[in-house]
Design a protein around this nucleic acid. Structure first.
Lengths: 129, 129
DNA sequence: CGGGATCCGCCCGGATACTG
DNA sequence: CAGTATCCGGGCGGATCCCG
């Protein structure tokens, strides 16, 4: 997903360009098609692979795996394997994302309110052109 | 960009599925590679096309156009043409995005703080595997 | 100045099949 | 149960050229 190593401010030395904008980098972290939903689901508590698969309607095994690996790589979720049979793997969020839970919820709330306006704007734009 | 008409809650009737998650839809609105930076730049005040082009380092004319059209279509920015010669076009944000300015800034602030942790997590993950 | 049109490479993500 | 492997199409975004 974000296998491309986005900048995330390399080398603090040398002056750190003042024009860098971290926002796109955040979006690169959770901007995948499913990452956000995975995060939301895990926000409610630890979940197993199959639980997530069933909770997130429409996601494929592959994309769930990819998304989880990506989030894990960036330190946003943890993966713990319980040595059981059948295998049992649990995913959970890390404290890292605690601080963005609120902004993310604010965005979600905004989406609900703005939805009709956006839909209308689109219809206007599309009909005009 | 988000030419694909994402759901944005169609038909309020019929019960509106309780499982729908608006977060991915927001990200579809501003999750493009440049949209967020355009929004940030316009947040500082109205800007002309060339101003944006110079402010957002690395963007091409094409992508700036595409991003602006997309934002305009979704009602997030306005485009006003001043009948001058040479042509003069100004872009500005709409009141719609007022409400997400704060969450967006929170995300940005988070990005700055979390950057080193994320970088470290990545190195650990990559070296292990 | 502020675009539009076209071509194209690449990577995201879907479908399917196989595995410890 | 929890993945991995492979194939593949579509679209996102870069480069380049042209236009009013």
């Amino acid at each position: 997903m974000s296998q491309r190593n986005i900048a995330v401010t390399d080398q603090p030395g040398a002056g750190a360009g003042p024009e860098d904008c971290p926002l796109p980098e955040v979006l690169a972290l959770i901007g995948g098609k499913w990452s956000a939903q995975v995060l939301v689901e895990l926000g409610a508590g630890p979940r197993r692979f199959t639980q997530l698969e069933r909770a997130i309607e429409g996601i494929s095994r592959r994309m769930l795996t990819v998304s989880l690996r990506d989030l894990e790589r960036n330190g946003l979720v943890t993966r713990t394997v319980h040595p059981d049979s059948p295998p049992r793997v649990e995913y959970a969020t890390t404290p890292l994302i605690e601080d963005i839970r609120e902004p993310l919820e604010a965005l979600t709330a905004w989406a609900r309110r703005a939805a009709p306006v956006i839909t209308a704007a689109r219809r206007t734009y599309d009909s005009h052109r």
